[in-house]
C-alpha cells in the first residue's frame, strides 16, 4: 500500500458563473521513502496538488489517503505531525517580526513536544545553520539561509512526508545546489518521503525517482527518471518541455 494516495482529485475556485477548474481528476500514489516530482508550467495546477493535500485549497472531488486512511477535513493535528510543507518564497513564508527561535518553537508548542530548546538547536544544526542563528530575525538572513530555516521548521515535528513547493526557485544556482544537497541528505538520513513541485525539469530529474507532468489541471503523463533521461516520453508536450529545458535553439520547437 502506498503512503500517499490521491484519487481523482478535483479543485475548483470561484463561484457562480466564473468557475476555474484548477485540478480535473488528478491521481497519483507515492510509496514510503520515495521522492516524487511534479513538473508543469505556471497555471498547470502543480502547486494546487500540494496545497489541496495540505488542506490549503478547496477539494471538490476525489480522495486523499495517507496510509490508506482518508484525511480529515479540516486536517487534524495528527496529519500535520506526519505531513509538512516547505513553500517557494523564503522571503514571504517566515514571519518578519518573529525570531527564528519563535518560528521553530511554535509548532513544538502546538503539538506538545518536550525538550523544546534542545530540539530547536538540533534542527538548526541539522540544516547546517548552527545554534547561533536562534535569536536572529528573518531579515538578517540571506535567501538560502531562510530556506534552510523553512526546512528546519518542517523537520522539527519529525514528519514522514515533506511537500516541497518550488523549494529552490527563488535562490541563486550555487545556493540551489546547497539546498538540494541538504534535502537529499535529510531524506537519506531520516527515510523521508518527498513530493517536490518544480518548473525546472533538471531539478526534478536530480531529486526524484518518479515524476508526473501536468498541464491545464490534468496529468499529461507519469514517467521514471530513467525514462526522462532517455527522452522516452510518449507525449509531445513532455518532449517540448524537455527540448525547451535544454537551452535556446534557433529552429522552432515543433508544436503539438
Amino acid at each position: 500500500m502506498a503512503l500517499i494516495d490521491i484519487e481523482n482529485l478535483e479543485v475548483t475556485f470561484g463561484s457562480r458563473g466564473h468557475v476555474v477548474h484548477a485540478l480535473r481528476g488528478v491521481s497519483l500514489s507515492v510509496e514510503e521513502g520515495e521522492s516524487f516530482g511534479i513538473v508543469g508550467e505556471s497555471g498547470s495546477g502543480k502547486s494546487t496538488v500540494l496545497r489541496a493535500a495540505c488542506g490549503l485549497a478547496p477539494v471538490s472531488g476525489g480522495r486523499i489517503l495517507i496510509d490508506g486512511v482518508p484525511v480529515a477535513t479540516p486536517r487534524d493535528a495528527a496529519f500535520y505531525r506526519r505531513v509538512q510543507m516547505v513553500f517557494q518564497d523564503p522571503y514571504a513564508s517566515l514571519h518578519p517580526r518573529h525570531t527564528i527561535d519563535r518560528v521553530l518553537s511554535e509548532p513544538l508548542a502546538i503539538h506538545g513536544f518536550d525538550r523544546r530548546e534542545a530540539r530547536v538547536e538540533q534542527a538548526l544544526v541539522e540544516v547546517g545553520l548552527g545554534a547561533g542563528f536562534r535569536f536572529r530575525y528573518p531579515h538578517q538572513l540571506s535567501g538560502g539561509q531562510r530556506q534552510r530555516v523553512a526546512i528546519a521548521r518542517a523537520l522539527i515535528l519529525e514528519p514522514k512526508v515533506i511537500l516541497l513547493d518550488e523549494p529552490t526557485s527563488a535562490l541563486d544556482a550555487s545556493i540551489q545546489a546547497e539546498v538540494l544537497n541538504l534535502l537529499d541528505r535529510l531524506r537519506a538520513e531520516r527515510g523521508l518521503t518527498y513530493v517536490l513541485v518544480s518548473h525546472d525539469l533538471a531539478v526534478v530529474s536530480h531529486m526524484c525517482e518518479r515524476l508526473m507532468v501536468m498541464q491545464n489541471g490534468q496529468v499529461v503523463e507519469q514517467l521514471t527518471r530513467q525514462a526522462l533521461q532517455d527522452h522516452a516520453t510518449t507525449k509531445d508536450y513532455t518532449r517540448n518541455l524537455l527540448t525547451a529545458s535544454e537551452g535556446f535553439t534557433r529552429s522552432p520547437v515543433p508544436h503539438s
Binding site: S174, A177, L180, N181, D184, L201, S205, M207, L242
Partner: peptide
C-alpha cells in the same frame, strides 16, 4: 566553472551536487 558545475542536469547523476 563552479557555477556551471553546480547546476543539476537532466542527464547524468552527480550526487551530491558540487557546491561553490
Amino acid at each position: 566553472r563552479g557555477l556551471l558545475g553546480c547546476l543539476p542536469k537532466i542527464v547524468g547523476d552527480v550526487r551530491p551536487l558540487p557546491v561553490l
